[in-house]
């Protein structure tokens, strides 16, 4: 009971692990490129929860928080580039289904 009510590092880690797995699953199951991107965001959030939990319970320093901020910014940049590319793909093929990108193979 104490483990349930007494929130500690492990609670956050387990939560992040589930987020990570859900994100991975999303990335494998979605056909839509934007869906995959959303799965990526889930995994990045899992990483951030980890980083901040470690920063709080582990080191007590801010490097975890700083890294988390960098991750957030990188995620935004990545989403911007990815969406521009998806938009371009959509303009060519009128879809964002990754399975439709089948010209390049072999």
């Amino acid at each position: 009971m104490n483990h349930v009510l007494h929130i500690g590092l492990n609670h956050y880690l387990v939560l992040a692990a589930i987020l990570f797995a859900a994100g991975l699953c999303t990335m494998t199951l979605k056909r839509n490129a934007i869906g995959i991107l959303i799965g990526v965001e889930l995994v990045l959030n899992a990483a951030n929860v980890n980083l901040i939990a470690f920063s709080h319970y582990g080191t007590g320093l801010i490097d975890g928080q700083v890294t988390a901020i960098f991750v957030i910014v990188l995620a935004a940049a990545e989403a911007a580039v990815a969406l521009a590319i998806f938009l371009n793909f959509y303009n060519r093929l009128a879809t964002v289904d990754v399975d439709r990108g089948d010209r390049l193979r072999g």
């Binding site: 965001e41 939990a53 709080h56 988390a68 995620a75 969406l83």
Partner: peptide, 25 residues
Amino acid sequence: LGAMFVGAIQLIVYAGGTLVLIIFG
């Protein structure tokens, strides 16, 4: 977890920026 600033940045950049971008896409 006491990371107020990261939380606020998460709301501004992630929820208010990246997610809007995604929905826009």
